[in-house]
Design a protein around this nucleic acid. Structure first.
Length: 584
RNA sequence: GCGCCCGUAGCUCAGUGGAUAGAGCGUCGGCCUCCGGAGCCGAAGGUCAUAGGUUCGAAUCCUAUCGGGCGCGCCA
C-alpha cells in the first residue's frame, strides 16, 4: 500500500462528502490536493494541503475548510488525531497499529513489496545503450546501460509492461569504417605488416581477433581485391563480432535486452522512404537552404538545397536535413522511421536513454515523434552525463587495448557488477558522475554500496543470532508476521517501520519521474536509520533487537528488522544487485 | 550567436509548489568491554548564483543577467 495515496483517496472522499452535504461548492477540482509526509516528523505522519489549495476556488477561508475536513478525517481508519497547523495544513497522526499492519504487509509480500499498479499494464519501450557496433562499451555507455536497465526494472515494478530495446546502428558510414578497419587486421592476420593504423580507421586491438577470424574462415579470398568485393561481407562479419562483444560486456553488468532492432533492416525494408512519403504528403517536408550555423563555422560550408523536415512546426529551432549530399538518408531520417516503428509495435510510451553529447538532438526527435504519430505518442529522452573514472582521486587514463577510453569491462572486472550498478545510480542522470575505483570498495559510510549492503547483512546476522538464542523457534517471515507487533511502541521503532513503509511511495514517485537514482538515496537513508537504531542498543540495552529473556519482544523486533531487510532486498532487486548475507 | 543541462554548507551532492532547506566527507566536541568491527551522538557551517515576476506559499514555475558543461548542415 502506498500510505500517502491511500490517505489522499480518503481525503478526497471526505471532501466529496462535504461537497454533497452542501458545505463546499459542487464542482471543485481536487487535483491539486496532496497527501505527503511532513518535512518535520513532529508534525505527524501525513500532511495535506487540501484546505489551502481549495480556499480560493471555494471562496472560503483555509481554516474553515480545514475544520470541516478535520472532523471527518478523525473518523478514518488508522487516524489517531488530526490537527490544523500553520497556514492551513491538516496533519494526521496515525495509530501505531496502522504501522504494525504495514510491517505485516511487508513480511507477507517479501521482495514484491512496493510493487504497484500505477502502470496498469501499459506498454513502455525503454531504449538504451544503442552504442554503435564498432567496439567494446566504455564506462559512459555503462552509465546509460545501467540507468536504462534499472529504469526498466523500476517501471516494471510499477506495473508497466516494459520492453528493453537496443537500436543497432549498423547502416551508417561508421560501419563501413569498421569494415575497412577489420580488413586491415585481416591482412595483418595473413602476415602483412600494416604498421600504424591509418587516421580515420578504428585503431582498437579488439579488431585483431575479427581479422584473424576472417583469415581463418576465408583464407586469402579478399586479399588484394577491390573494396567493392569484400566491403559487404566483411562489414556483416565485423558487425556480428562487435555485437557479440557488446552483448558480452552487457552480460557482465547483468543486462539483457528483449529486442535488438537493426537500422539497416529498417532501411532495406523501405521504412524510411515510407515515413518520409507520408510526412511529405502532409506538408512537413520541403527542399530548402539552411542558414549556416552560428559560431563555429564548418570549413567546407556552402549553401546547398536540402531535403528538410519542418521540425520548427513542432517546437524545434531550425528545420533538419533528411538526406546527405551523397543521397543517403541522414541518421535523423532513419531515426524517424525507427521511432514510428516502435509506435506501430504498440508503444505510445517511449523512453530513449542517450549520452549528454546528444542533447542537441532531443528537440528534433520529439518533434519528429509528434509529427509521425499525430501527437499520440510520448517520447521522454533521458540524457546521461559523463562518468569520470578515478582511483583515489586520481584521474584514470585510457586503456591501450580499447583505443582511447576506459572500458566498462575493465571497471566491472575490478570492482564487480553490483558495485558498478549501484554507483551509476548515485547521481541524477543529468549530473556528471565521479566513479572512484578505490572508494567504491571501501568499507565505510562514505561508500553507499557497502553501507546499504551492510544493512542487509546485519539483518541476516541478527536472524542468525536469534536462531541460536531461540533454538526451535520458527523465524521465517510467515511466522514473524504473527509476532505481537504491538510490543513495537518505541518512537525509534515506529520511525523505522514508517520509513520502510514509505518504499511503495518511493517506487511510484521514481517511476513516474523516470528517476531511478531516488531509490539509491532512499536505500541509503533506510540503511542509515537501521544502523542508528542498532547502535543505540549499545547504550540502551532495552532497545536491542534480541533480548534473551523476552522472547515475544525479540520476535516483534525481528519482524521489524526483517521488514527493513526485505525492503532493502526489494530495492537492490530493482537495481539488479544480489543482497549480501554477510560482509566478509 | 543560438539551443539544452547545471549553479544549494569549505568539498561532493540530495531535495515530487509547502511549514525551521538536508546527507556524506572535512572541521570541532563526546561515545565505542556491541545482537556483527568496519561506526554512533552532537556542534559549527547557507543572501539555495543575481535581479525581477507568478502564488496563500518558490531552491523548485516564468523572465532577464552572470558563471560552468555539452551541442550546433552532408557524424552517429
Amino acid at each position: 500500500m502506498n500510505v500517502f495515496s491511500h490517505f489522499r483517496d480518503e481525503i478526497v472522499a471526505s471532501l466529496r462528502e462535504i461537497a454533497s452535504a452542501g458545505d463546499l461548492p459542487a464542482d471543485l477540482d481536487f487535483r491539486a490536493v496532496t497527501a505527503e509526509p511532513p518535512r518535520d516528523p513532529s508534525h505527524g505522519d501525513v500532511a495535506t494541503n487540501a484546505a489551502m489549495v481549495l480556499a480560493r476556488p471555494a471562496s472560503m477561508k483555509p481554516r474553515d475548510i480545514a475544520a470541516l475536513l478535520a472532523v471527518r478525517l478523525e473518523r478514518v481508519d488508522g487516524v489517531a488525531s488530526v490537527e490544523i497547523a500553520g497556514p492551513g495544513f491538516i496533519n494526521l497522526r496515525l495509530v501505531s497499529g496502522f504501522w504494525h499492519d504495514r510491517l505485516r504487509e511487508v513480511l507477507r509480500a517479501g521482495v514484491a513489496y512496493g510493487d504497484s499498479e500505477i502502470g496498469a499494464g501499459r506498454p513502455v519501450n525503454v531504449e538504451y545503450v544503442s552504442a554503435n557496433p564498432t567496439g567494446p562499451l566504455h564506462v559512459g555507455h555503462g552509465r546509460g546501460a545501467v540507468f536504462g536497465d534499472v529504469l526498466a526494472s523500476l517501471l516494471s515494478k510499477a506495473g508497466f509492461a516494459v520492453t528493453r530495446e537496443y537500436y543497432v546502428n549498423d547502416a551508417g558510414a561508421q560501419v563501413d569504417v569498421l569494415a575497412r578497419s577489420a580488413h586491415l587486421r585481416y591482412r595483418e592476420a595473413l602476415g602483412e605488416s600494416v604498421g600504424d593504423v591509418p587516421e580515420g580507421l578504428y585503431p582498437g586491438e579488439y579488431l585483431k581477433e575479427v581479422g584473424a577470424a576472417l583469415a581463418r574462415k576465408h583464407g586469402d579470398a579478399w586479399l588484394d581485391k577491390p573494396e567493392s568485393e569484400w566491403l559487404e561481407p566483411v562489414r556483416e562479419a565485423a558487425i556480428a563480432a562487435m555485437m557479440a562483444l557488446i552483448r558480452e560486456d552487457l552480460e557482465a553488468v547483468g543486462i539483457r535486452h528483449d529486442v535488438f532492432t537493426s537500422e539497416r533492416a529498417l532501411v532495406e525494408a523501405g521504412r524510411v522512404g515510407e515515413v518520409l512519403d507520408d510526412l511529405e504528403k502532409r506538408g512537413f517536408i520541403y527542399t530548402g537552404v539552411l542558414e549556416p550555423p552560428k559560431g563555429k563555422l564548418p570549413e567546407d560550408w556552402e549553401p546547398r538545397p536540402q531535403t528538410l523536415f519542418r521540425s520548427t512546426a513542432f517546437g524545434d529551432d531550425v528545420d533538419r536535413p533528411l538526406r546527405k549530399s551523397d543521397g543517403e538518408w541522414t541518421y535523423f531520417a532513419t531515426d524517424i522511421a525507427y521511432h514510428l516503428d516502435k509506435y506501430r509495435r504498440g508503444f505510445a510510451n517511449m523512453i530513449d536513454v542517450w549520452g549528454a553529447d546528444h542533447g542537441g538532438y532531443v528537440k528534433r526527435m520529439k518533434a519528429a515523434v509528434e509529427a509521425v504519430t499525430g501527437g499520440e505518442a510520448d517520447l521522454d529522452v533521458k540524457l546521461c552525463q559523463l562518468v569520470k573514472v578515478l582511483r583515489s582521486g586520481e584521474l584514470v587514463r585510457m586503456s591501450k587495448r580499447a583505443g582511447d577510453f576506459v572500458t566498462l569491462r575493465e571497471v566491472v572486472d575490478e570492482v564487480g557488477k553490483g558495485v558498478v550498478r549501484f554507483i551509476m545510480l548515485t547521481r541524477k542522470n543529468d549530473a556528471p558522475l565521479d566513479f572512484d575505483l578505490a572508494k567504491v570498495l571501501e568499507q565505510s559510510r562514505d561508500n553507499p554500496v557497502f553501507y546499504v549492503q551492510y544493512a542487509h547483512a546485519r539483518v541476516c546476522s541478527v536472524l542468525r543470532n536469534a536462531a541460536e538464542m531461540f533454538p526451535g523457534e520458527d523465524l521465517s517471515d510467515s511466522a514473524l508476521v504473527n509476532a505481537d507487533l504491538s510490543l513495537l511502541a518505541a518512537p525509534e521503532e515506529i520511525d523505522l517501520i514508517r520509513m520502510a513503509a514509505t518504499w511503495p511511495r518511493i517506487v511510484e514517485g521514481a517511476a513516474e519521474a523516470h528517476e531511478p537514482h531516488r531509490l539509491a538515496f532512499y536505500l541509503y537513508d533506510l540503511a542509515s536509520q537501521l544502523h542508528a537504531l542498532w547502535t543505540k542498543g549499545r547504550d540502551q540495552p532495552e532497545l536491542r533487537f534480541l533480548i534473551e529473556d523476552d522472547r515475544p519482544l525479540s520476535l516483534a523486533r525481528l519482524a521489524m528488522v526483517r521488514g527493513v531487510g526485505i525492503v532493502v532486498a526489494s530495492g537492490l532487486g530493482v537495481f539488479g544487485i544480489e543482497p549480501a548475507e554477510e560482509m566478509r
